[in-house]
Every structure is written in structure tokens, then in C-alpha cells.
């Protein structure tokens, strides 16, 4: 086993950690950085619970080596709200009861944010396909799609 020193910016703050070269970014974020809002549902890129942004693009952190994150910027669910102010997606997820168990919620929020940044006025179909990489087993996606629609509307007002 050989180690690797990773210097990153996480949710805007500089952060350094050392890890074995084969460690995934998901494991590092959870076990070394302490950001357990990033969830592991499968470890193979099929459920999206570990979604984060890496230099602004949406990825599954289980499919990224921590070593790859060296010199790059990471965004996680822990960085979504601005102090006391929740992100509109966070607000709408609560308001629309778009979560039941909530384990998939961090991943959905990150994916939905990535979608709305690219496409502020997505159709229902566009929302459904953009979120297809995030599995939810509780809600049947109904209230999640509605929450994203409501957040999009809210964000367009600004």
C-alpha cells in the first residue's frame, strides 16, 4: 500500500488529507474528511447516493479515486446551504415531503442542482432523465420531481 497526499477545496474550504492510493473519494470524504452526508448505496455508480461535484461537474464519488481530486474543488450536500439560508432545493424538498427515509436525498439535491444550473426550466421528462442516476426506493419519485419543479420556479424568480 502506498499513500497519497490530496490537497483539495471542499465546499469552498482548503482541505488536505492523506489516503491509500486505491481509496475512493467517497471513502475519503466519509472517513477522513468527516462528510458523511455523502452516502454509499452501492459503490458501483448505480445509485447516485454518493453524488458530488468535482470542479463543478456531477460525479459519483464512489467512481473517483481520492488521488484524482488533488488540486480540484469538491462540492457536497454539506455545502449547499448558505449559513442559515437553505438552498431552494433543500427548502422545496422539505416543503413537498420529497423525502421519506432521506438516504438518497443528498445525492438527489446535488444532481438536481447540477441540472438546474445547466437548465433552469427543465420539463418533467428532462428532470426525470437527469435524475435517473439517483435511486430512491421510498417515494416513487413523484414528490421529488414536484420539489425540483417548485425549486426551479423559485430559482427563476431570482
Amino acid at each position: 500500500m502506498s499513500g497519497f497526499l490530496v490537497s483539495t477545496k471542499i465546499n469552498g474550504d482548503a482541505f488536505q488529507f492523506a489516503c491509500p492510493s486505491e481509496e475512493t473519494l467517497l471513502d475519503s470524504l466519509r472517513n477522513r474528511v468527516g462528510l458523511t452526508g455523502v452516502k454509499e448505496g452501492c459503490g458501483t455508480g448505480d445509485c447516485g447516493a454518493c453524488s458530488i461535484t468535482l470542479d463543478g461537474s456531477l460525479v459519483c464519488s464512489c467512481l473517483v479515486l481520492a488521488a484524482e481530486a488533488d488540486g480540484r474543488e469538491i462540492g457536497t450536500v454539506e455545502g449547499l446551504s448558505d449559513g442559515m439560508k437553505l438552498h431552494p432545493l433543500q427548502e422545496k424538498f422539505i416543503e413537498h415531503a420529497a423525502l421519506q427515509c432521506g438516504i438518497c436525498t443528498p445525492g438527489f439535491l446535488i444532481s438536481a442542482k447540477a441540472l438546474l444550473e445547466k437548465n433552469p426550466k427543465p420539463s418533467e421528462k428532462e428532470i426525470r432523465y437527469a435524475l435517473a442516476g439517483n435511486l430512491c426506493r421510498c417515494t416513487g419519485y413523484d414528490k421529488i420531481v414536484r420539489a425540483v419543479q417548485a425549486a426551479a420556479k423559485e430559482m427563476r424568480k431570482k
Partner: peptide, 21 residues
Amino acid sequence: SRVNRPDGIDKVTGRARYGAD
């Protein structure tokens, strides 16, 4: 009535602690 759930904020901010957390 459709009130907000008490665990909502924890779950949308990643603070809620699950089995592996």
C-alpha cells in the same frame, strides 16, 4: 395538515446520521 417534518433539515443538509455514519 401538511407540516414540515422535524428531521427535514438534518436530512437535506447531510447531518442526519444513518447506520454507517
